[in-house]
Nucleic acid binder design. Structure first.
Length: 216
DNA sequence: GGTCGGATCATCT
DNA sequence: GATGATCCGACCG
């Protein structure tokens, strides 16, 4: 019932978004915290494997430059094979494996050779929800829908995002980000980033308040 | 509701 | 050899 209503609205949402151009380089080539904030409400669309899945971005984190000690490209680490995409042009995907288990998607921001990116931490599922369920729980033991995409590893699994997409241009299929309805400031909460051990008080996490899809 | 530990491995020292 | 931008299930209360 409620599930059916949501799916109908979501399909219309995505069809409408289909006429919209993806976010362009100028969007990403700005201050990383601003990009992280402005990505809230945007729509991440995957057609990986020929199956369309999409969700609205409701939680992000910014990782900003060599002086951000929590960044994979912090000064003490420098440029390495893994973080190479963080130095690429704005609008590039940086996808890495965490804990040997999960994939995480970032959008590269700011200027070439300045390593900065926005981690996409949670989505509100909009399209292809049954496909997401199958990818998240391939043994058929489905969990609740609110756990489909309420975390960076979970949304990557639901949208079939893997390391094969590291370095991908996010203006193009099979993984694109389209502009969405702007989330009002009153609905945006800013706070410390999650799961890090350095710079734990930097307020670079942005999420939509009262959203069941936010990780916490 | 909460806390805890294991999974699992690429990456870097 | 240690670490980690996570997730999940087990266990406790």
């Amino acid at each position: 019932m409620e599930r059916g209503r949501k799916r109908t609205r979501s399909a219309a949402d995505v069809r409408a978004a289909g006429r919209v151009r993806p976010l362009d380089r100028r969007f990403y080539a700005r201050d990383t915290a601003v990009v992280a904030r402005e990505l809230l409400g945007a729509v991440l669309v995957s057609t990986v494997g020929g199956q369309r899945t999409a969700g609205r971005i409701v939680e992000t984190e910014a990782y900003i430059g060599p002086h951000d000690p929590a960044s994979h490209a912090a000064e003490r680490i420098g440029r390495t094979q893994r973080n190479t995409s963080m130095f690429a042009v704005a609008g590039t995907a940086y996808v890495y494996r965490i804990y040997g288990v999960h994939w995480c998607l970032n959008t590269v921001t700011a200027d070439v050779d300045f390593p900065a990116a926005v981690l996409v931490r949670a989505l509100e599922p909009l399209h292809g929800i049954e496909i997401m369920r199958l990818r998240r729980w391939p043994d058929g033991a489905y969990g609740p829908d609110r756990q489909l995409t309420n975390g960076p590893g979970k949304l990557a699994a639901a949208l079939a995002i893997t390391g094969a997409l590291d370095g991908h241009d996010l203006r193009k299929s099979p993984l694109r980000i389209l502009p969405g309805e702007r989330v009002a400031d009153a609905r945006v909460r800013t706070g410390p980033r999650i799961g890090i051990t350095r710079a734990t008080d930097w307020p670079l996490r942005f999420c939509v308040t009262d959203c069941p899809w936010v990780s916490r």
